[in-house]
Computed example of a mutant assay.
Amino acid sequence: MALFFDNITNKAPNSLISVRQSDATQTDMEFAHFMRLAESWLNDASETDKQIFRKCNGTEMEHIALKALKDVAPQTSFNAENIKLVSGLQFPDIQAAGHFGVEVKSTKSDSWTSTGSSIVESTRIPDVSRIYMLFAKLGGKTPEFRCRPYEQCLSNIAVTHAPRYLIDMNLADKGEKNIFEKMSVEYDTFRLLGEKEKINSVRKYYMRANQTKGKYEMPWWMGDTNTEVSSSIMIRFFTDLSLCEKSDITARMFILFPELFGPKQDKYKRAALWMCSRYSVICSNLRDTFSAGGKVDEIGGVVFKKKKPQVLKTLYQNRALITELLSDPDEALMQDVEDHWGENESLSLSMSKWLCLMQQTFNENEELKDVDLKKLFDCWNS
């Protein structure tokens, strides 16, 4: 890279003062101007020597971005001496005048999209209040550069080893919302949340979005971090669990998903996704787990005029734990009820509320509509 730097004019920094936070509107405008100049500098340099840029790795790109910022600084109110590279130690990669930052991302492909930084921002420099994304698209005919306000080019959230933003530098051009607009929260509000609050906010957003679309999808990669129940690092089969684990999961499943007793063919989908998301447990034959063994005409001393589905017997076998959980729900159950029943539904969680929801489902099932579940539970518990 030495030859490249030798061929670019190195302007000496002037003695202009650093930008202060006191006038937010003016300084934001000045920062935007600063970044536009840097973008032009980089695109002009790329036209001069395409191959040098094409060969850049991430670290080299950060140093070139730093040089661009220092070179254009004399045309702005920013002092080149107050622009520093902190990559590898803190977020964002470059800090300018204390309160401003630049996150440098590059891709070898001919695309304006990439995976970005962690949503947690645990290494964020506390003083930095405004960040720009400086994106280098090194593939294609000519390497190109774009600079945008950080939050305006974050399209979504995905996971590698942790939840990370997805970058799309064309969001504004396509008229599409960034992830914060989708979540109805300001970036500056979201970034100040604690790690648990961020994860839970994102999890709730995806839960609501998928429910609205009627999709059988759940964010398996981020269970509720506020509860003691967390997803295992290992994926296991339901059939390999201990009897205690099976009973606990089954009881919670019966509470959360009344549709397990309904007539629909896809009634096991939500429960199967929840089990995977919450416990890292999969079951290849969930229907058989609850219904295997045919129909029964007697359960717990109660004789039925017509035979009932085996799943009702499974309910009977888990009645004690269901009653216990509904009488004294833990945080995990409260959160799951809110996620799957609806916002704030955990506030009204009770045995009577659950029985009511279950009875509504029973009434939709030809095989169960003649069953009074409350009376049945009273008989079973007497």
Rank of each mutant, 00 (worst) to 15 (best):
V337N: 01
L89M: 12
Q152N: 14
A80G: 00
I157F: 12
A73F: 13
E30W: 00
F78G: 04
L286T: 10
L154F: 01
Q26G: 01
L37H: 03
E298C: 12
L66H: 13
K295Y: 11
T239K: 15
V337T: 07
G88V: 14
M61C: 08
D240K: 03
K305P: 03
A162R: 13
T250A: 04
F5V: 15
P74V: 00
V120L: 15
G101L: 03
H340V: 00
K353W: 04
P163C: 07
V229R: 08
R164C: 15
W220S: 09
D240F: 06
M183R: 06
D240R: 07
F53M: 04
T289Y: 07
K84P: 07
Y206C: 07
Q265P: 06
L326V: 07
D339M: 14
V72Y: 07
Y216H: 10
S15C: 04
N344G: 00
K50D: 15
Q211V: 12
N10S: 15
E60K: 01
G294V: 09
I83L: 05
K141T: 02
T361M: 10
G116Y: 05
K269L: 15
S106Q: 04
L273N: 11
E197D: 10
K215G: 02
E345A: 14
F135H: 05
K295R: 13
S87P: 10
R278F: 03
T113F: 03
N156H: 10
S46P: 08
M275H: 03
K174A: 15
K267W: 06
E324Q: 08
A97M: 03
A97H: 01
I8Q: 09
Y268P: 03
S122Y: 03
K137G: 08
S118F: 09
T27Q: 04
E345F: 14
K307Q: 15
T225R: 14
S291G: 14
Y316F: 01
G223K: 11
I157H: 10
Q265N: 12
V104P: 06
D378E: 12
A38H: 11
S352P: 05
A73R: 11
Q51W: 11
I119V: 13
K196N: 06
K182S: 02
F261R: 04
T289L: 08
R54V: 14
R146L: 09
P92L: 10
V159W: 12
L326R: 05
K307C: 13
K307T: 14
R146V: 12
L260F: 12
L321S: 00
